[in-house]
Design a protein around this nucleic acid. Sequence first.
DNA 1: TGCCAGGCCGGGT
DNA 2: ACCCGGCATGGC
Length: 227
Amino acid sequence: MERTRVLVETMSIKKLILLEIYDRLFEAFGPRHWWPAESRFEVIVGAILTQNTAWRNVEKGLAQLKAKKVLSPDAIYNMPVKELAALIRPAGYYNIKAERLKSFMRFLYNGYGGNLNRLLRTDTTSLREELLKVKGIGPETADSIILYAAEQLSFVVDTYTNRILYRHHLIPDDASYDMIRDFFMDHLPQDVSLYNEYHALLVCLGNTLCSKSRPKCLQCPLQGLNQ
DNA sequence: TGCCAGGCCGGGT
DNA sequence: ACCCGGCATGGC
C-alpha cells in the first residue's frame, strides 16, 4: 500500500496504466518470443508480407520462398518480379508486395552493398528515416524492422494497438501513428526487450480475445482498466 | 456468406 | 494536410 502511494506520486498515471496493461497481458499470455522468424532477413520479408494481412497467409508465402531456397537478399534481388509474385501469392496483394520487396532490395544494394548487417547497425534515427524513404515501407513496417530485425528502440504501432488503446479511452479516435508511438515511447522505460514483448502481446490480444468482431469480451485481461 | 487480417500508395480535395 | 479507393488471398 505504501509502495503504491510512492509510485503514484513519483510516476505519471499514464506510465502506471501502460505498465498495468503490460503486466496483465504478460500474465495472460506469457512471453511471446517474437518475431516469428529464423533470421533477420526473414523478419523483414515477413514485415512487408504481413501488411494488412493475416499472419497465417504470410507463413504460406514464406514457406514457398524457403522451399525454392530464395529467402535471401541475393536471390530476391536477382529474381524476376513475376516469379516472386507467384511465390508470395498466398499472402495477398502479391503484385504490390513483390514490387515492395524488390524496392527494398534495391535500397539495400544501392545504399549498403547488399550487406544487411551494415544497414541494421545504422543508428536508430537515420535507419528510420532511410527505411521510410523506401517505396512500400511505411511507419509500421519500418518500426518492425528497427525493433525486431535491428533490435533497436522503436515502438511498433498497428491496428490492434490502435483499437485496444481506443477501447480503453487512452487515445482519441483520430490519433495518428506517431502520436500513439510517442505515447508509448514517452511513458515506458527505454528497453528493447520490453518494446519487443509489449507489441507482441498486443497482437496476441488483438488476434484472440479482442478482435474487431468482439468489442466487449468478458475474458479480456484488460477488463475494467482505466474506468 | 461476408467480414476481417500485424498497411501503404497515389490522386483528389 | 487529410481522405479515400485500390490492392487479394484464405479462414472463421
